[in-house]
């Protein structure tokens, strides 16, 4: 039997249903798992996406694009293939894609996590024959602490900064992580948090979707000699080390990312503090999910696929890495990585 989903130059492709999943080049029909830039790209003719994430997809793909919203669990036919979207617990409106054809069920996980997250619908286990799973943190060293515990650490750091007369600048991804931090911190405070310009719109879209978060205000709205001491600011990683940071001096910097679990990453990126808060599955969650889906064949993609393939094989599960161009959680500063796919060109000749 032919594979229901194959990698191509455009992205993951379902030949039987003639559509792509999260294509990285323009195609006719695109099913989108979530609104992160490496999954939701503009230029395709028609899109399908989960209804709760519709506003985020519009923000990313463009308001003129034709996007068909699907409720979680709602079935649509692409020729002989039945497709439905199921919660992935990654960010607001994130989805796994279930494909059924001639009695075979495949699931493409997109990005997912199993930890509690007040900003999105929890992950749903979808039984399947073949599971295409993300593997961003596919190594046994990655296990997340309770998000509430990490939020407590962030809050403590903020209070320490306040005591020392410092501004606390927390770097985090603008879509998903920022909103999760704002929601988690509600356990500890009701103070206003100040946002970098790249985040204000996305935070508003989350609020419009009914997600409860700390009060926020745009950094740009504040008067010229505003006193930043003791304030918490959220900014994307790319803003770190730029002249934009100067006006907040003296400050302490933090980074909320799963990569902060490892000391080397923390030290290399020269943030004062690292908080291992991730929207991706940790190692125990990856294993648990693979087991719970009952999949007989597992195809890990983007990230540390090799260890996960190794583990599956040790368990007697058929597994092979699937080569795609998704980034997962970018490990390096967005500033250094930029958006291009291959920032280092081969020299001429």
């Amino acid at each position: 039997m032919n594979d229901l989903v194959i990698p191509t130059g455009q992205g993951l492709y379902c030949p039987a249903g003639d559509f792509h999943i999260d294509p990285w080049r323009p195609v006719e029909r695109a099913v989108i798992t979530h609104g992160h830039a490496d999954h939701a790209r503009s230029g395709s003719k028609r899109y399908w996406g989960a209804a709760p994430g519709l506003s985020l997809l519009r923000e990313r793909i463009g308001y003129g694009a034709g996007i068909v919203p699907l409720a979680y669990g709602q079935r649509v036919e692409f020729g002989p293939v039945t497709v439905s979207l199921h919660p992935a617990g990654h960010v607001l409106g994130s989805a796994q894609v279930r494909l059924e054809h001639q009695g075979q069920v495949w699931v493409v996980s997109g990005d997912y996590k199993r930890d509690p997250d007040p900003t999105c619908t929890p992950f749903e286990v979808v039984p399947c024959d073949v599971f295409i799973t993300e593997a961003t943190f596919g190594l046994p060293v990655y296990r997340w602490q309770e998000p509430a515990e990490i939020a407590r650490e962030i809050h403590e750091w903020w209070q320490d900064c306040k005591a020392q007369g410092l501004c606390a600048i927390l770097h985090c991804y603008a879509l998903g992580k920022a909103q999760r931090v704002l929601a988690e911190l509600m356990r500890y405070t009701d103070e206003t948090v100040y946002l970098h310009g790249a985040m204000t719109k996305l935070v508003k879209l989350y609020r419009d979707a009914g997600v409860a978060m700390l009060p926020t205000d745009a950094i740009g709205n504040q008067p010229k000699f505003f006193d930043w001491k003791g304030r918490l600011l959220l900014a994307p990683p790319g803003a770190g080390g730029t002249p934009w940071m100067r006006r907040f001096k003296p400050y302490s910097t933090g980074f909320a990312s799963g990569w902060m679990r490892v000391r080397g990453s923390r030290r290399r990126q020269a943030y004062d503090r690292g908080f291992a808060l991730s929207d991706h599955a940790d190692w125990p969650s990856l294993l648990r999910t693979i087991t719970e889906t009952g999949a007989k064949r597992v195809l890990p993609t983007h990230g540390n696929t090799e260890a996960l393939v190794q583990w599956c094989r040790e368990q007697g599960i058929d597994a092979a890495p699937l080569k795609t161009e998704y980034e997962g959680e970018p490990q390096h500063d967005a500033a250094a990585v930029a958006d291009s796919e291959d920032p280092v060109a081969n020299p001429a000749g």
Partner: peptide, 11 residues
Amino acid sequence: LVEDSYAHVGD
């Protein structure tokens, strides 16, 4: 898997 982990962490 221990080897992969060590190669990743570097310590």
